[in-house]
């Protein structure tokens, strides 16, 4: 039974990694913690849902249609809000994205009401493979995990191998110097924001396929995504996958102990990892240097 719980926790962790992908990417590149991250995931879910219902198409096809829309929204977010707030200090992006989250959550409530929604994916929602008579792997859960790994790997490759990826990394290191070697740093950041929000759209779609959601689901998703990022080590994309898995496993084991254990265990692991990070960093100068080297991915 424990093996099953851990296995299901790992698969759940795939969802958290997928959810955290955009948050981790945006923090790694632009040093912005986007407090509207969860709300944008829910917004994406509503966009995909609306497209799927309007044209009577499969949610996967609707996601393909929604991706460029959300990428454009990311671009717009960067040029209208984030760029300006980055200029006025490190605290302003927190304040402006928090304000944005309040606006988005309540605007979605106004538009879609308090009812819970979910994306209809037919049998896929329940289908599973039986590994042993006791242990089953949900097809959707496995698909989510595979998509998360592919997306994180794809982003890593994109950043290291493509010209745009290199431009984004250069801008992230130092926008002014990047300008000197002919990079348009504004465009590089806007492209990064577009990519980040496109990944959030994918995460939002899987959120809506695996469970029900309502306009106020966003903040909880933000917290899960943030916990995955921090547990795995801020700014590292593969760390985010490990962080997501650690969170998922902790929650599943916690849920075996008590009904509230699911959330409590997740938060507890988050704080234990943070405390361990401080403790280790405070003890040995070599680990501190290693931690510092690892931090800016």
């Amino acid at each position: 039974m424990w093996f099953d719980q851990i296995l299901q926790g790992v698969l759940l962790g795939g969802y958290y990694a997928l959810l955290a992908c955009g948050l981790s990417f945006m923090f790694g590149v632009m040093r912005i913690v986007n407090l509207a991250h969860g709300s944008i995931a829910v917004l994406s879910a509503f966009v995909v849902l609306s497209i799927a219902e309007a044209f009577h198409i499969s949610p996967f096809l609707a996601l393909v249609v929604a991706l460029p829309i959300m990428a454009a929204a990311g671009w717009l977010l960067q040029v209208t809000i984030l760029e300006r707030s980055l200029r006025s200090g490190s605290l302003t992006p927190l304040l402006s994205t928090f304000g944005l989250a309040v606006v988005l959550d309540n605007a979605m409530f106004q538009k879609f009401g308090a009812n819970t929604h979910s994306l209809d994916i037919g049998d896929l929602a329940f289908a599973s493979w039986n590994v042993t008579p006791d242990i089953a792997i949900g097809q959707l859960a496995l698909l989510t995990f595979v998509v998360a790994v592919a997306l994180l790997g794809g982003l890593q490759l994109f950043l290291s191998r493509t010209p745009l990826g290199r431009a984004i990394r250069a801008t992230s290191e130092d926008p002014d110097t990047a300008e000197l070697v002919g990079i348009d740093s504004r465009r590089a950041y806007a492209a990064a924001a577009a990519i980040a929000i496109a990944t959030v759209a994918i995460a939002g779609t899987f959120l809506a396929m695996r469970a029900t959601f309502d306009p106020y689901t966003g903040p909880t998703q933000l917290i899960f995504a943030f916990e995955a990022v921090v547990i795995g080590g801020t700014g590292s994309l593969w760390g985010t996958l490990i962080g997501g898995i650690a969170l998922g496993v902790a929650q599943n084991i916690g849920s075996q102990i008590s009904p509230q254990g699911f959330l409590i265990a997740g938060h507890a692991v988050f704080f234990v990892v943070l405390a361990a990070r401080f403790f280790i960093a405070g003890r040995d100068p070599r680990t501190l240097i290693r931690a510092l080297r690892r931090a800016p991915a």
Binding site: S85, F98, D105
Partner: peptide, 9 residues
């Protein structure tokens, strides 16, 4: 929310 957003910017 909008007021907080606009004032911060």
């Amino acid at each position: 929310g909008a007021a907080a957003l606009l004032f911060s910017l």
